[in-house]
């Protein structure tokens, strides 16, 4: 269905140059996945062979230990544990981030106060200071507080790089919203809570969803801060992948884990793609 739509769009509306351009972009995005996919099924793949000389399935019976996808999908690879951790931390971070950023964005968008621009600059500081510097300094403090190696510790550090993004997005949404509708509701006798629940939030929702999605994706991709705070005890998909490929080689199981790491992001994008395109960017920002 989708493919047919894509094809017809390709045939009808685009010029020859545009078609080639589109295919090139698709090639650049999908290209790197092809060797990764082949590697994940390989047993021995040496240069200059175009395809593996020995495939994993040929060796599967002979090997004492699980190889390639058998390893990736076995509990020994800890992929499942890492996925659960990544999703759990991402969700909690997103919720806390929203709770902090919604009121903050409202104030930043609507009120004027002294030092506001300095404050806004201050808020984006975490994006400028290198993660490693923040990470190692916080680790020293967190060890004293007993937060190192705990979920709480990781969630707190994940808030550092996500809050600036979320605040910026929500401030833009609030600015686009104006106060007219809320005032009108109040004139008609709505309480503050009712205004919040029935007017402000529904109008903000598309922006909130976009911000939440973005926060979740950022959180699921943070390596260095998670690595410092998790101390190897709490593993997420990025730390698992790093420990696997840090040896400098990409064997079959490393290739398999790399593919798995991309899955949560892709699923999330597929689910929300439609919503974001039509709702958030249509109403939230376009207004």
């Amino acid at each position: 269905m989708a493919r047919r739509k894509f094809k017809s769009a390709l045939n009808s509306r685009l010029s020859g140059f545009q078609k080639i351009y589109l295919l090139l972009i698709a090639g650049f995005i999908l290209g790197p996945f092809i060797p990764l996919l082949i590697q994940s099924f390989a047993f021995r793949w040496a240069w200059p062979d175009l395809l593996p000389g020995t495939w994993w399935l040929e060796q599967r019976e002979k090997s004492l230990l699980p190889l390639a996808w058998d390893y990736v999908l076995s509990p020994y690879s800890r992929v499942w544990e890492a996925t659960l951790n990544t999703v759990f931390i991402g969700l909690v971070v997103t919720v806390i981030c929203l709770a902090i950023c919604l009121p903050a964005a409202r104030v930043l968008a609507r009120e004027k106060f002294r030092g506001k621009s300095a404050f806004e600059f201050f808020l984006s500081m975490p994006l400028i200071v290198p993660e490693a510097a923040i990470g190692i300094a916080l680790l020293m403090i967190f060890i004293r507080l007993g937060l190192a190696g705990s979920y709480t510790g990781i969630i707190i550090v994940h808030l550092i790089p996500t809050i600036p993004y979320m605040i910026r997005m929500l401030t833009a949404v609030y600015q686009g919203l104006g106060t007219d509708f809320e005032e009108q509701a109040m004139i008609l006798g709505a309480s503050r809570w009712q205004v919040m629940r029935m007017v402000t939030l529904p109008m903000l929702l598309p922006g909130v969803v976009a911000g939440a999605l973005f926060t979740f994706l950022v959180s699921t991709n943070i390596f260095l801060l998670t690595f410092f705070m998790g101390q190897g005890k709490i593993i997420t998909l990025p730390t698992l992948l790093f420990s696997k490929i840090a040896g400098g080689t990409l064997d079959a199981s490393a290739a398999g884990i790399t593919l798995v790491v991309t899955v949560p992001g892709i699923i999330l994008l597929l689910i929300t793609e439609r919503f974001i395109k039509e709702e958030a960017f249509g109403k939230g920002f376009g207004n």
């Binding site: 230990l65 699980p66 390893y71 076995s74 509990p75 020994y76 690879s77 420990s243 696997k244 840090a246």
Partner: peptide, 10 residues
């Protein structure tokens, strides 16, 4: 970084 060692441990 070694699959066999990880498997043996677990």
């Amino acid at each position: 970084g070694s699959d066999p060692i990880n498997i043996w441990m677990d």
